[in-house]
Write a protein that binds this DNA or RNA. Structure first.
Lengths: 217, 217
DNA sequence: AAATTAATAAGGGTATACCCTTAGATAATT
DNA sequence: AATTATCTAAGGGTATACCCTTATTAATTT
C-alpha cells in the first residue's frame, strides 16, 4: 500500500495448527506475503521491533501465553508506524470485543468464519479499512438494549422531577435549583426525596448513576 | 422462512427514485417478493397493521416526513410478530446508528453500498441474522476510545483514592467508609476533598459522573 | 541529605442533604 | 362526585458533605 504492492503479514497464534491453516488459506493470494509467525504477543512484538522490513498487518489470536492479543495490539498501536491489526478469536464475549476495540484493533474476526470471509477480512484490514464479524454487533447491541429498558422507567418520573434531576446533574444545590425555578428550597427537597424513592437510591449518588444510564448528564 | 420460501418485503423511502432502484436491484432475486412500498413510516405502519399477508422484512430509509425510519422500527418491534427491519441510510452519525440499534433494527446499511452488498444485507437480515455496514463500527468504536483517554487520567488518582472512590460509588457515607477501612472519618474527608479537586468537581455528583466514565460503579 | 508525595489525623465551622410530618391547590381520571 | 397524581410549601431535626487550617509518618524521588 505504501511502497510495495504485497501486504506483509505477521501471523500470531499459540496453536501451530491455526498458523498452518492460515498459511494454507493465504498461500495462493499473491498480493499477500507471510513474513513471519509467532506463538505469543511478546514474541510478535519483539519481531516487529527488530524487523528491517516493516510489517503491514498483524493477524493475531487473543488467548496466548506471555502476552495476549489485546495487550499486543495496545503495544503495537503505540509504535510510530503501527501495523494494522486483525484480531482473530473464538470469543464472542462483550469484554473481549470491547477490549479489542479499546485497544484500537482494526478488525475482530471470529474463528468459525468461512475461508472467504477470512480472506475478505484480511484484505479489508490490510487496505486500511476495518472489519468486524457481524456476530459481534449484537453484543454491542445488547448494551443499548439495557438502556432502552430503563427508558421506560424514566417515564414514571414526572416532568418536574425530570427537570430537577437534570439540574441536580449540573451540580446545582437544592437552593440554587429553587432560585432557578422560583420555588421554595423545601419544595425542591420534596422532589429530591421522591426521586430517591422512585429510583431506589440511598443518596444522590444512586440518583446520578440512574440519570447517567438514561443519558441525562 | 416460516411458511413460505419467498421473503415478503416492504420498501419504505420518500424518494421514488430510491424505491425504483431497490425494486430494480431485487427484481431478479426469485426468493424475494416486494409486496408493497411506502413513502413514510406512518404509511408503512398502517400497511403492515392492515396487511393480510404478513411482511417478513421492512427495508426503510431514516429521513422521511411524518414518521422517520427509527420511529417506524420502534413501532414495528412492538407488534406481536415483528418483521425484520433493515435500516438504509446516508447517515454515519453516531446518534443515528445508536438510535437504530436502540430501536432494535436488525441491520443498518449505508446507501453508498454496492449492489452486491445491499442484496447480501437484505438476504442476511431476511434470514433472521443481522447486518451492519462495516463503516458504522468505528462510530461505536469512538465511544470506547473516549474511555481509553480518561483511563490515563485515572492513573493520577492514588490507590487509596481509587479505593475510596469505589466505596463512594457504592453509596457509602464517609463514616461508613472510615469504619470499613479502619481509618478516621476526617481522613476519608481529606481523600474526598482531594478527589474533588483532582476531578475538578463541585460536589460528589461530579465525582460520580467522572467515576462512571471510567467504568467504576 | 533534601524534597516531594501519599496516607494518616484532627478541630471548627457552615451549608447541604436527608428524614419526619402535614397540607393546600390543581388537574386528570374513575 | 370522588379519587388520584402532581406541584407546591413549611417546620424541625440529624447526619453528612464540604470548607478552612495544621501536622505527623513513611516512602519515594531528586
Amino acid at each position: 500500500m505504501e511502497e510495495n504492492l504485497t501486504v506483509k503479514i505477521l501471523l500470531v497464534d499459540d496453536h501451530p495448527l491455526v498458523l498452518e491453516g492460515l498459511k494454507g488459506l493465504l498461500m495462493h493470494e499473491n498480493a499477500i506475503e507471510i513474513v513471519a509467525t509467532a506463538y505469543n504477543g511478546k514474541q510478535a512484538l519483539e519481531f516487529i521491533k527488530a524487523a528491517h522490513t516493516p510489517i503491514d498487518l498483524v493477524v493475531s489470536d487473543i488467548d496466548m501465553p506471555e502476552m495476549n492479543g489485546i495487550e499486543l495490539c495496545k503495544e503495537l498501536k503505540k509504535l510510530n508506524h503501527p501495523p494494522q491489526v486483525l484480531v482473530l478469536s473464538v470469543h464472542t464475549s462483550s469484554t473481549m470485543v470491547k477490549g479489542a476495540i479499546a485497544a484500537e484493533a482494526d478488525g475482530y474476526m471470529l474463528k468459525n468464519a468461512s475461508k472467504e470471509d477470512i480472506i475478505y477480512a484480511i484484505q479489508r484490514v490490510a487496505n486500511g479499512s476495518c472489519f468486524y464479524s457481524q456476530e459481534i454487533i449484537p453484543i454491542i447491541y445488547a448494551q443499548y438494549q439495557k438502556e432502552k429498558k430503563t427508558d421506560e422507567q424514566l417515564a414514571t418520573l414526572t416532568p418536574r422531577e425530570k427537570e430537577i434531576l437534570s439540574l441536580i446533574m449540573k451540580e446545582l444545590t437544592s437552593n440554587e435549583i429553587a432560585e432557578k425555578l422560583f420555588i421554595s428550597r423545601k419544595t425542591v427537597e420534596v422532589h429530591r426525596a421522591n426521586l430517591l424513592e422512585k429510583t431506589a437510591s440511598k443518596s444522590t449518588i444512586g440518583l446520578v448513576k440512574y440519570a447517567l444510564k438514561l443519558g441525562i448528564d
